[in-house]
Computed example of a mutant assay.
Amino acid sequence: MAEGAFHSYEERIDAKKIRGRSESFSDHFSQPALFYRSLADWEKSHVANAYAFELGKCNHDPIKERMLWLIAQIDQDLAKKVAEDLGMSVPSSIEKPINQAIGADAKVKEHQPGKKKNYLDKSPALSQANTKFESIAARKIAVLVADGFRMKDYENVQKLEKEGATLVLIAPHGGTVTCDQNMKHSVGAAIATTESVLFDAVYIPGGSKSIKALQKEAKFTKFLNEAFKHCKAIIADNEGEDLIDGTYIQHHKEDQAVLINEKVAVIKKTIAQHRNWKRMEIAEMVPA
Results as ranks from 00 to 15, higher is better:
residue 89 S to F: 10
residue 195 E to Y: 07
residue 26 S to Q: 03
residue 213 A to F: 00
residue 185 H to V: 12
residue 185 H to Q: 14
residue 86 L to V: 03
residue 77 D to Y: 10
residue 277 W to Q: 02
residue 82 V to A: 04
residue 9 Y to H: 15
residue 50 A to P: 01
residue 260 I to M: 01
residue 211 I to Q: 02
residue 244 I to R: 07
residue 283 A to V: 08
residue 127 S to N: 03
residue 54 E to S: 09
residue 164 G to P: 12
residue 79 A to I: 12
residue 263 K to R: 10
residue 197 V to Q: 11
residue 100 Q to K: 00
residue 105 D to S: 14
residue 13 I to L: 15
residue 123 S to A: 14
residue 133 F to S: 13
residue 268 K to A: 12
residue 28 H to Q: 09
residue 217 E to K: 09
residue 237 D to A: 03
residue 231 C to L: 10
residue 132 K to G: 05
residue 181 Q to F: 03
residue 29 F to W: 12
residue 78 L to R: 03
residue 245 D to R: 15
residue 118 N to L: 00
residue 193 T to D: 15
residue 153 D to A: 01
residue 20 G to D: 13
residue 59 N to W: 11
residue 108 V to K: 01
residue 94 I to F: 09
residue 49 N to Y: 12
residue 212 K to G: 00
residue 204 I to C: 12
residue 133 F to W: 14
residue 233 A to T: 14
residue 131 T to A: 11
residue 245 D to L: 15
residue 36 Y to R: 10
residue 17 K to G: 03
residue 220 F to D: 04
residue 259 L to E: 05
residue 20 G to I: 15
residue 264 V to C: 01
residue 43 E to H: 06
residue 82 V to L: 08
residue 250 Q to W: 08
residue 231 C to S: 11
residue 5 A to G: 05
residue 4 G to R: 06
residue 175 G to I: 04
residue 186 S to A: 15
residue 82 V to W: 11
residue 24 S to Y: 13
residue 22 S to C: 02
residue 10 E to C: 03
residue 12 R to W: 14
residue 79 A to G: 09
residue 137 A to S: 09
residue 192 A to K: 05
residue 107 K to A: 11
residue 87 G to I: 05
residue 227 A to E: 06
residue 278 K to V: 00
residue 40 A to K: 05
residue 274 H to K: 12
residue 207 G to L: 05
residue 29 F to C: 03
residue 1 M to L: 09
residue 35 F to S: 10
residue 206 G to M: 06
residue 30 S to Y: 06
residue 260 I to P: 02
residue 6 F to R: 07
residue 98 I to R: 04
residue 280 M to E: 01
residue 132 K to S: 14
residue 140 K to T: 03
residue 64 K to R: 10
residue 229 K to D: 00
residue 153 D to M: 02
residue 78 L to M: 11
residue 129 A to V: 04
residue 74 I to M: 12
residue 159 K to G: 01
residue 21 R to S: 01
residue 239 E to F: 10
residue 18 I to Q: 10
residue 201 A to D: 01
residue 246 G to E: 10
residue 135 S to T: 15
residue 61 D to F: 14
residue 204 I to N: 09
residue 63 I to N: 04
residue 127 S to G: 04
residue 178 T to F: 12
residue 225 N to T: 11
residue 288 A to C: 05
residue 198 L to V: 02
residue 202 V to K: 07
residue 80 K to T: 13
residue 45 S to R: 12
residue 30 S to I: 09
residue 58 C to L: 12
residue 82 V to H: 07
residue 259 L to S: 02
residue 61 D to P: 11
residue 145 V to H: 08
residue 88 M to K: 13
residue 84 E to N: 02
residue 228 F to T: 04
residue 275 R to G: 02
residue 28 H to D: 10
residue 50 A to K: 08
residue 100 Q to N: 03
residue 197 V to G: 11
residue 188 G to T: 12
residue 288 A to Q: 04
residue 119 Y to R: 13
residue 16 K to G: 06
residue 82 V to N: 02
residue 63 I to K: 01
residue 112 Q to H: 02
residue 65 E to D: 15
residue 88 M to R: 14
residue 91 P to L: 07
residue 164 G to K: 07
residue 81 K to T: 00
residue 199 F to K: 00
residue 130 N to F: 13
residue 203 Y to G: 00
residue 177 V to P: 02
residue 73 Q to P: 05
residue 197 V to A: 13
